[in-house]
Amino acid sequence: MLNFEYLRPSTVTEAGAMLGKMSEARPLAGGMTLIPAMKLRLAAPTALVDLAGVPELNGIKVDGKTVIVGAMTKHADVAASADVRRLIPALADLAGGIGDAQVRNKGTLGGSIANNDPAACYPAAVLALGATVTTNRRKIAADSFFTGMFETALEPGEIVTGVTFPVPAAAAYEKFRSPASRYALVGVFVAKTTGGVRVAVTGAATCVFRASAIESILAEKFSAEALASLRFPADGLNSDLHGDAQYRAQLVGVLTKRAVAKLS
């Protein structure tokens, strides 16, 4: 790993100022992606701004019909949270299935969505639940947050501070995971929200996306049988050593049916 300057702010304002000053500085959340990338010199920031010392970024709050998860809240804490388990159990299940126990003890919600790995689990939940991402500058709707492979709407120096999840009527996440990396080969998050049925797919393409064709079928009839004749198109899906585009397209259908069956 190349050397860098280590900075440890105690407020979001201070962190924002540190990131604003140095163009090659990056925020450090749980480090579960960034540190391995730095070890391989795929990333070589000149400074790391460690957000672990910013208490306002950590924790889970319930506010009316929403659950607000701080950006630095660890996957293990979301998975174990009584509030999340009661109000959005699918989100707790998703968090409890990320990586392994050690990843869940360090990895964070904010880190996961800011990185926007094409196969990460959290982006599927944020998108399907129609959540709102809060940063140190603004609020960003999930539909405009994830913009491409490892790309988000975040601007330089902008820090995710938390995510507000509206409590859905029902939701389920089904993931076919790579046994080695435990990332989603394909993951499908189905949510019945006040804005209708939302289905988000991760792992299948270069970026998490909403499967609008499936959403309209489920809006008419919310049942696995309604999806019986579904042939999800393989166009634009990923092909790699883990599976080709046709295989992933097949998985989208199978996992959506499993998620819907769980809720019917």
Partner: peptide, 19 residues
């Protein structure tokens, strides 16, 4: 390389000592 930090298991090969 698993060790405990504040009672939780983590992989010490992916943890910066300075933190």
């Amino acid at each position: 390389c698993v060790v405990h930090i504040d009672g939780r298991s983590v992989k010490s090969c992916s943890t910066l000592a300075v933190t």
